[in-house]
């Protein structure tokens, strides 16, 4: 997929806290050039951005302290492709329930997310998902294995966004609005590459 002539898209991973390394490794495997983003100036150098899993209250607070919050809002509103997982989904949600004290979001995804929707860590789980975008590709398509770690849930999807994946009981756990993808789970923890591939496709389409 990448050769000598194609160095691959430049993907920034917001590297303030969380599972930055797992995302970076998967993106590199898929042919992207990966760079950590810790400063506002670094946002200008990327074709797409990943908001990793982590503690959303901490990442939110650190984006404020590092001066990244407003620049992040601007690039997301300006159409930069973004993939957020778990904490990243929370950061992208237009509306947040059960946030920490004073917690803010960047917006970009017309959904209502509930933080820690499944309970404490002993309730964290892995399962196979229903992914409409992958249906109809034949019976040999492997199911999507997803890990939910103190995960959020998408409680409402607004008119601007669409469902991307759901639990077997129908509850929404991933949504898309144009170039913005938000997942409540961690494909980077289970080696599931298809969402990162979809994201890189969105980046390549520009």
């Amino acid at each position: 997929m990448s050769g000598y002539l194609d160095p691959g898209p430049r993907i920034g991973v917001l590297a303030l806290q969380g599972d930055v390394r797992e995302h970076s490794r998967m993106l590199e495997h898929l042919g992207a050039q990966v760079m950590p983003v810790r400063r506002p100036a670094e946002l200008a150098e990327v074709d797409g951005l990943v908001l990793p899993g982590g503690e959303s209250t901490v990442i939110d607070r650190l984006t404020g302290l590092t001066g990244l919050r407003e620049p992040l809002r601007e690039v997301i509103a300006g159409g930069l492709p973004v993939l957020g997982t778990c904490a990243g989904l929370i950061l992208l949600a237009e509306r947040l329930r059960d946030g920490g004290p004073g917690q803010e979001t960047f917006g970009g995804l017309d959904v209502t997310a509930r933080r820690n929707a499944f309970g404490r860590q002993t309730e964290s789980f892995e399962t196979d998902l229903v992914v409409p975008a992958l249906e109809g590709r034949g019976a040999d398509v492997p199911p999507v294995r997803a890990a939910f770690i103190r995960a959020p849930l998408i409680e409402e999807i607004g008119p601007a966004a669409e469902l991307l994946a759901a639990l077997p009981d129908g509850r929404a756990v991933a949504a898309r609005q144009g170039r913005v993808l938000g997942l409540a789970f961690h494909p980077e923890s289970t080696g599931e590459t298809r969402f990162h591939e979809l994201f890189l496709q969105v980046v390549r389409e520009g």
């Binding site: 599972d19 002993t122 199911p143």
Partner: peptide, 23 residues
């Protein structure tokens, strides 16, 4: 497909440790 949620797996336990990184 395994639709039964599995709690306490190695992935889920190590997963929380990974989410705490940099913290």
């Amino acid at each position: 497909p395994s639709h039964t949620p599995a709690t306490g797996t190695g992935t889920v336990k190590r997963g929380l440790a990974e989410m705490l990184k940099g913290g």
